[in-house]
Amino acid sequence: MEIKGSVALVTGGGNGIGEAVVKHLAKHGAKVAVVDMVQKNIDRVVKDIKEMGGEAVGIQANVTSEADTARYIKGTIEAFGQLNIAVSCAGIIRDGMMLTLDKETGKVSRKLGLDKWQAVLDTNLTGTFLTMRDAAEAMVNGGWEGLLVPISSVNKIGQVGQINYSSAKVADALMPKIIVGEFLMRGIRNIRCVAIAPGYTATPMLTGMNQEALKAILEDVHLGRLVAPEEIASLIGHCIENQALNATTIEITGGLCYPKGIAK
């Protein structure tokens, strides 16, 4: 599938990886729907695309809402007449250990709250499911060629302090196998699914963290720096154009290793 002339919808398109994906696709001739919760981020990105001479529509929405999902899918088709690419970049973190012990008594003093668990599962897993499901529905009913791109994470392997995030991201990474398998069973041959699992990426969330902690993380990255959001966007662009990429999850980490050099 060619990027030029296609229609893409990117959740979390107002900043970070999502913004880079939106701009990459617009730069290469795609019409894009920027979906985000923060209106001022939507405005900034749509304005940038306008200045690039591109075509964009901005839709403020919450990906955990079924009604909002239906609204931004419908809005994209209303604006551009079709939908070919859906990328679910919207994601949050609410880190914490499952149990915290009292140093003096050794007893549990705090548990990870259900609010932190549920919020991360709702956005990172349910939100991704809803976007993939409704985008696929629109593509099938419209008869349009398509690519579904759930965004997973290298932390799908299980990161301490992220039982909520890792649980959601490992489930996101499974989606391509299941979705494409079901498409095959149903005779749907023109829609592919490829998940992307980024490593530590130079998004506002990460560049704003404790710089000492960031330095320690980078010591385990073979590349020696954070992955740029534009590099992830470029990979998604390649996934769109390379039809053989399907039913898989691709890691893009810069060579993230465990201490002592074992690649994750």
């Binding site: 209106q39 405005d43 749509v46 695309i49 529509v57 901005g58 209303e78």
Partner: peptide, 24 residues
């Protein structure tokens, strides 16, 4: 002011673009 959409409805006359915009 905020931008709801940019570069839409290429080649459409004003009346048609207005109707499409309202639907969007």
């Amino acid at each position: 002011s905020a931008i709801a959409g940019a570069g839409l409805f290429a080649g459409l006359p004003e009346s048609e673009a207005g109707a499409r915009a309202l639907a969007l």
